[in-house]
Write a protein that binds this DNA or RNA. Structure first.
Lengths: 335, 335
DNA sequence: GTGAAAGCGCTAACAA
DNA sequence: TTGTTAGCGCTTTCAC
């Protein structure tokens, strides 16, 4: 990489002259500016990012900690963050906590050494189970703002971007009740997560309000249970189930495929709605009716919030929580 | 963040003494070392990463450029890269090219200002279509090593990690021929990609060698065609098709679900094999027989190669290409 | 055993 | 209009 020093030497001027010329300072003579810029162009000069970071005490870099990159929603949020960050000239350093509290702590620690100006993160499963929040508080007290999304720690004072999980599942369940479904099953693969619990509560509320059936909940143990087998044997034993709301895409897809496999007509005899993405909806015939999370918008919002906060000096402005509304996209797995 | 300066002041010693004490230099007295370390601990001192980067002219950061984070394979490779990088104390800055040549160029440019020590990337679709490689060559000539994976530019001299796409599809097709399938269809959603083309060639070779049918190829235009409709109408018009090999997971899942929807018995009358991940295989009943790419291993290998290259001074050692073998995981969508 | 000083690349206040 | 200098935080050589 070419440095100012080298340019200065070759041009026979001082370093600061070169610096000013390149920054279009009024101070420098026209002719000098031209000469400097020409040489800089020739050598493809780029100001060294590290030096700038040191000088400005700002890295223009956001640390993103994601529990699991294979989760479509999380991946999409990452995409949203990256897009928005790039628009504002920020880079993102990505760490994957792999749902581990320890890795999450480490990543936070490791990047809090001047590598990033702030964090965007979704809380790891283990962290939610153990309900640990000290590491978040410590990071914030070090002056590094955090924005949490999707899976958030409510007891940490920071900006948040969440989804209306409760309402979404409440509404989805109600729409099935409107279809006159008599025995609606809630299936979930994510019951240890805050969002999973919210979704279950939304389902419960709708069912209890309606008052015609007891809540019927099937929880899959991630990694342990054979997803297909559990759902199949449950549906076989509970023949009166005529609809499924699923807290995650896999549960929805498998439930629908299993229903068909058991000879049920979808959506005539059996309806399915699931939290899932567009491409997931193509993985069943008929196509799956989905609750869409607008994950990219979540990422964009999170990035905007963080960038705004990092730019104002007094970082102690009130924290905000943005709720990104879901929407139901009707396909042929419901009436 | 606490700095050496602050510690030095508080302890009434010089900055260099503190620095040496923390780095366990022999020069410093036992007692001093103890006092310094104590205070550093108390204040949770961490050496400033940016200052170190500037000093050492090394960032310990890898730039990763991925075309599409929603692609499971690419996401999984990213996971592998992150895991291996973290193990060696490297961070990764992730850019998403979104299959765009322009964004790819920009990301490369933007990070080549001292932000990273090297790159790991998979070539964007547009880049492969236009066959542009100058930006890669330029980056390498600036002294920043590149490791390409999966979708590589063969004419660029750099380390590569690829998959045995050709052989994998050749073998998959042959295994269907062994099942006595008479009319095997190749379906692909990724025909503009180098890997898509390799897979098609593998299929062609197997079919032509066998000599009993003509190659039968169905190419889906990504984003344009309705994936389900195209496959369904094709299978309806070509009733003799009794097996599908798919170059991508969606095509495989949809083909299988469609076959079932058309009343075919899988795997009795109809077989499907697809390039897909484990979780994809659960999205069909019967479960999909898949060609697995060991994406995480690809990422790990790429990271190792890059780190090795960055650590040796004379970066002009011969370039290598690692081939990560696929494996076929038999499920119930084949005999 | 401890400290002063230089230097990584850059910007900006100040001097000339 | 141009140059000198200090300083961001750190390591390291060289003096003391």
């Amino acid at each position: 990489m070419v440095t100012l020093k080298q340019l200065a030497k070759e041009l026979g001027v001082s370093i600061s002259t070169v610096s000013k010329a390149l920054n279009n300072s009024e101070e420098i003579g026209e002719e000098t500016v031209r000469r400097v810029k020409e040489l800089a162009e020739l050598y493809n000069y780029k100001p060294n990012k590290v030096a700038l970071s040191l000088k400005n005490n700002k890295t223009k870099t956001i640390g993103v900690i994601i529990p699991n990159i294979l989760n479509r929603i999380l991946a999409k949020v990452l995409f949203g963050i990256e897009t928005e960050a790039a628009k504002h000239g920020y880079n993102i350093i990505t760490c994957i906590s792999n749902e581990s509290l320890e890795k999450e702590k480490q990543s936070l620690q490791l990047l809090a050494n001047g590598s990033v100006d702030g964090f965007i993160l979704s809380v790891a499963e283990e962290t939610q189970i153990k309900n640990e929040i000290e590491h978040f508080k410590k990071t914030i007290s070090q002056g590094l703002p955090i924005v949490m999304f999707d899976r958030v720690a409510h007891d940490v004072m920071c900006d948040k971007v969440i989804v209306d999980d409760f309402d979404a599942m409440y509404n989805a369940t109600k729409s099935l009740l409107l279809e006159k479904r008599k025995n609606i099953l809630f299936v979930s693969n994510i019951n240890d997560l805050s969002v999973g619990k919210l979704r279950e509560r939304g389902y419960n509320k709708a069912i209890l309000e309606h008052g015609k059936q007891e809540p019927l909940v099937l929880k899959i143990k991630k990694g342990k249970d054979d997803h297909q087998k559990v759902i199949k044997s449950f549906l076989k034993k509970n023949r009166t189930v005529d609809a499924v709301v699923a807290a995650d895409s896999s549960s929805g897809i498998i439930a629908l495929n299993t229903a068909i496999n058991l000879g049920l007509k979808v959506p005539k005899d059996f309806s399915v709605i699931a939290f899932a993405s567009k491409s997931d909806s193509h993985h069943t015939i008929p196509k799956l009716t989905t609750i869409r999370q607008h994950a990219k918008a979540i990422g964009v919002n999170a990035a905007q919030m963080l960038i705004t906060r990092m730019q104002k000096e007094h970082a102690n402005a009130d924290v905000k929580t943005i709720i990104v509304k879901t929407s139901i996209v009707k396909n042929k797995s419901t009436l």
